[in-house]
């Protein structure tokens, strides 16, 4: 990847670089939109903001279950914001996580399944009044889901080669 005349070795094969950058751009767009109109000083009723319209089929957007910026609720709930933040943050870090992803191996699938299960248990427990979750706990669990989802597919972007394994195990 060439940035301002410098060549950066991302470890991502050439055929996947466009896909990586494309998905990164999409995730940045989603994350910025998820912040809602408060960040941009919007004055129209928040329910009709374009940011809220874009997510209205994906999230309940309950203001009581959302973080607020500038006196207005974000366009997504706290859990969704956690998911999108996890997706973007981890996707951004993928080129730097080669060894970690090599180390994780098949654990990533279990981690993703675990994060899904945790979110389901949290949602169900709260809905059945076994416990009361809050925006922070929802956001953290969503964050876990976003992180593990990216880790799960990241190994496909970073072919695990013998030289990485050799370096990792100290027998290069």
């Amino acid at each position: 990847m060439a940035v301002a005349g410098f060549h950066i070795n991302t470890g991502i094969p050439d055929e996947y670089k466009r896909l990586y950058v494309g998905l990164l751009s999409g995730l940045i767009l989603i994350w910025l939109t998820a912040l809602g109109g408060g960040l941009y000083g919007s004055s129209q009723p928040w329910i009709t903001e374009w940011q809220h319209q874009m997510f209205h089929m994906l999230c309940h957007q309950d203001p009581d279950r959302s973080f607020w910026i500038g006196g207005r609720p974000m366009a997504v709930c706290a859990r969704c914001f956690g998911i999108y933040s996890g997706l973007l943050g981890t996707w951004l870090c993928v080129p730097f996580l080669r060894r970690f992803i090599t180390f994780m191996g098949n654990i990533t699938s279990w981690a993703l399944a675990g994060a899904l299960a945790l979110n389901f248990i949290d949602f169900t427990g709260n809905a059945m009044h076994f416990w009361i979750n809050n925006n922070i706990s929802r956001c953290i669990l969503g964050l876990l889901l976003g992180i593990t989802a990216v880790l799960y597919i990241a190994s496909e972007f970073l072919p695990i080669t013998q030289d990485i394994k050799g370096t990792f195990y100290g027998n290069e």
């Binding site: 998905l23 767009l29 989603i30 939109t33 997510f55 597919i153 496909e156």
Partner: peptide, 20 residues
């Protein structure tokens, strides 16, 4: 126009998970 970019990107992501 509101739905296509987001559903597109999210389904791209689930498509990648599907490949794996």
């Amino acid at each position: 126009a509101y739905g296509i970019p987001f559903y597109g990107v999210l389904n791209l992501l689930t498509g990648l998970i599907g490949v794996k």
